[in-house]
Design a protein around this nucleic acid. Structure first.
Length: 425
DNA sequence: CTCGAGATCAC
RNA sequence: GUUGUGAUCUCGAG
């Protein structure tokens, strides 16, 4: 499986067309040349022939990547390297061809960045291992994996399968592209740019070596990008594996293992792909990690924030949209009780939100006065402004806020999304 | 099946 | 302002 004409396949019309559609379709931010998706077609028309000939002669040099820092959910900072649209097009074109070459040979236990593979399959596999008695887990954490990839090692690996020297040279120049940070150019000596379309594939090409080594040693493991969990039967075996695999990674793959974050523990103490494992009264399963629930609650709090002026319909729409997104995610969980509690929590937030709609409360009060009912308690709550919704018990007001009302507003509950009724067509 | 708009997650 | 790959869902157009 060696291709002499790899470059020709990369810059073939059909391949480039696919790559172009993808890159423009993403509508991502512009690179250092400030050419965004609206200007890109023009740039392609004027410059492509020149760039194509440069590629064919192996003379093309990518532009610098734009350094962007984004906060991570755990408080850290993620460094992105954003190539220009043209470089993204080229990388995407390379990626599409190399995936066909490499992906079929990747390990069964590798689930990240791969077509037709997802986190749920990884979790199912992990559950299988745990149920088979592999009750300890070696959690390997690689230190800033993307930023520390060894160029020489990677190029050496690639040259084993790729014969076309121009392609190798092109990839090497992509790896070495300068980084523009605050207007200053920095040379890149190691790492793959996080944000380049080719980077995920390159990461899998490197870590496939780890997969093959683990398989050779007969380990049960699951890998999702740089997140690798090995399942063993005892703490002692785990310590031994941790020791030898760390040594292998540093010596062979030139990668550093984060000793503080790499541990050997029990499955229910780990966080794998946003989930964790539980075993209560003999029943075992997968459930969403506490952190994820906190994130979801924060999102709901944001929508039902009292300070933010927003109509009820608008909030309902936002919650509905959020719920159908999270519903999918929660579907992967085995735990049933979590949703009920979470759903009731959301509904109470919505009720609270409704109460704070001053106009609506006032008009309701007027309606009630017309009917001859004295909405004493509702009025009092409105004046004090700091009541929990439950402190108000005016029967007429609360009746309109029950579940039927929420349903009429179109707010599907989490439970309904996670376990929808069967629909017969 | 393929594209659009929106959303969620993993890394 | 925030890139990328992969997965998923809702709606819409063919």
């Amino acid at each position: 499986m060696q291709f002499d004409m790899l470059l020709e396949e990369i810059i073939s019309k059909s391949n480039l067309h696919l790559a172009y559609d993808r890159v423009v379709g993403n509508k991502g931010a512009a690179g250092v040349d400030n050419i965004g998706f609206s200007d890109f077609s023009e740039q392609v028309q004027t410059e492509w022939l020149l760039i194509k000939s440069q590629l064919e002669q192996g003379k093309y040099r990518p532009k610098a990547v734009k350094r962007v820092k984004i906060p991570k959910s755990n408080g850290g900072i993620r460094l992105l390297g954003i190539p220009t649209y043209m470089d993204r097009l080229i990388q995407q074109a390379i990626s599409q061809v190399l995936v066909k070459l490499y992906d079929p040979d990747f390990s069964e236990n590798s689930y990240g960045f791969r077509a037709a593979k997802n986190a749920h399959q990884a979790l199912e596999k992990a559950k299988e291992y745990i149920n088979a008695g592999y009750s300890h887990v070696v959690d390997l954490d690689l230190e800033q994996f993307f930023d520390r990839v060894n160029h020489d090692y990677l190029m050496n690996e690639l040259s084993k399968n790729i014969d076309d020297k121009r392609v190798l040279k092109l990839i090497h120049s992509i790896l070495r592209a300068d980084i523009e940070d605050d207007g200053k150019l920095v040379h890149c000596k190691q790492g793959v740019p996080q944000g380049g379309p080719l980077s995920p594939l390159l990461s899998n090409i490197i870590l496939d070596k780890l997969d093959k080594e683990l398989e050779r040693r007969g380990h049960r493991f699951v890998r999702y990008a740089d997140d690798c969990s090995i399942y063993v039967k005892s703490k002692r075996a785990g310590d031994r594996v941790m020791e030898s695999i760390s040594a292998y990674l540093e010596k062979e793959l030139k990668l550093k293992v984060n000793v503080e974050k790499s541990v050997v523990t029990r499955p229910w103490l780990t966080r794998l792909l946003g989930f964790t494992f539980y075993h209560k009264k003999g029943s075992k399963g997968i459930t969403v990690h506490r952190k994820s629930i906190v994130i979801y609650k924060d999102k709901i709090r944001g929508i039902t924030c009292r300070r933010k002026p927003s109509t009820m319909e608008d909030r309902m729409m936002q919650i509905r949209q959020l719920n159908q997104g999270w519903g999918n995610y929660f579907k992967l969980s085995d735990a049933k009780t979590v949703f009920g509690e979470l759903d009731e929590w959301v509904r109470s937030r919505v009720r609270l939100c409704y109460w704070v709609q001053w106009r609506q409360v006032k008009t309701r009060v007027k309606q009630l006065e017309k009917l001859g009912v004295k909405p004493y308690q509702a009025y009092q709550w409105g004046n004090t402004r700091k009541g929990y919704w439950r402190t108000v018990h005016s029967p007429i007001l609360t009746r309109s806020l029950n579940n039927a009302f929420l349903k009429k507003q179109g707010l599907l509950s989490l439970k309904e999304i996670v376990a929808p009724k069967a629909v017969y067509v």
